[in-house]
């Protein structure tokens, strides 16, 4: 029954997105044209990738508020690297970005794993620290478009079958994350650690280590996004992606990833991100001010939370039944 609900929920998101697209294209013909849809998807790629990282962490009953700061620091690092060593191959730069991101994620993960500090506290701290590090690294200076190489800036923009490489990157990451979550030991451990940490421990799963790896994945994806972000906007400065961590959380919540852990899917996170992407792209088209956009996004998030809460309550019945059963057991004691 629960699974059907999930299916229902993901289908529901698809339907809502389709309805939105139809409504917007009624107001502004051409909105639903393939080229524009590809454009929206491309525009949402970074959010999709970051939301998948966030999802991995949230599934283990944690949260990563430092993703955007990670993007800022790693983005600054690769931007400066490209400016200083224009001859460095792009593949190496991307590897370095993944590496820096992974290390920043591992730092979060180690605090959560080894010191048992709640992830919200750890990443709230590293959020400030990583952005501060970006400032220290650059001295507050910007890396501008003219300092970066053509390859660095243009590669993600190359079209392949009508979609830029940026969009294809997101598709590849979605596929990889789908495999990781559904076909690997780590993926299963992530669901189990968030779904019932005690049962996971008893089944021989190291919950702390699993959380650590979730943070590493999140950090690594943030590292990748750092390069994508800097090349897309052709600038690196301390404040890039400020507040974007909240968008990633919002995408997860809208996509039905339970903030209590253990429930959620790759498809959900992707659809959640796409939903935000469609709204963001559509509202200017129909002449709604950016401020109204923020209010609308906010309302949608709250609506999603209410929807989730209702779903949790439905699930809660099972938990209550379970609690009733264990209370019985206690009664017997």
């Amino acid at each position: 029954m629960l699974k059907q609900l999930f299916k229902y929920r993901e289908m529901l998101l698809v339907v809502i997105i389709a309805v939105l697209l139809a409504a917007f294209s009624a107001r502004s013909p051409g909105f639903a044209k393939p080229a524009n849809l590809a454009n929206i998807f491309n525009d949402t790629s970074i959010l999709i990738i970051l939301a998948l990282g966030q999802m991995t962490v949230i599934l283990t009953k944690s949260i990563d508020l430092s993703v955007a700061a990670n993007v800022a620091f790693t983005g600054m690092a690769v931007g400066m690297l490209n400016a200083a060593y224009p001859g460095m191959p792009l593949a190496l730069i991307i590897l370095i970005a993944l590496g820096i991101g992974a290390v920043l994620g591992a730092i979060n993960g180690l605090f959560v794993w080894k010191l048992g500090i709640p992830s919200i506290v750890v990443t709230l701290g590293t959020l400030t620290i990583y952005r501060g590090m970006a400032f220290v690294l650059s001295g507050g200076a910007w890396v501008n478009a003219h300092q970066m190489t053509e390859t660095f800036l243009q590669t993600p923009r190359q079209l392949f079958l009508g979609l830029p490489i940026l969009g294809w990157t997101a598709i590849v990451i979605v596929a990889i994350m789908y495999l990781v979550m559904s076909r690997t030991f780590l993926g299963r451990a992530i669901y189990a650690s968030g779904g019932n940490p005690t049962a996971a421990v008893y089944a021989g799963i190291d919950v702390g280590r699993t959380r650590f790896f979730a943070f590493v994945i999140s950090g690594m994806l943030a590292g990748l996004c750092a390069y994508l972000w800097v090349s897309r906007y052709a600038v690196a400065y301390v404040d890039i992606a400020a507040g974007f961590e909240l968008d990633t959380v919002a995408a997860c919540v809208i996509g039905g990833i339970s903030t209590l852990g253990g429930i959620g899917s790759v498809a959900g996170a992707v659809l959640g991100a796409l939903f935000l992407g469609v709204i963001k792209n559509a509202l200017p088209v129909i002449d709604i001010s950016p401020f109204a956009q923020m209010a609308i996004s906010g309302s949608v998030i709250i609506a999603a939370v209410i929807f989730n809460a209702r779903q949790e309550r439905r699930r809660g019945r099972i938990i209550l039944r379970d609690r009733g059963a264990s209370e019985q057991i206690e009664v017997a004691a």
Partner: peptide, 26 residues
Amino acid sequence: VPEERGRHGAVLQLPIYQNISLPSLT
């Protein structure tokens, strides 16, 4: 096999086969 089989035993959100295989995944 712990006493509180509800709390320590099963991951309720996961399907049956994934629960059964959980400790045998290696």
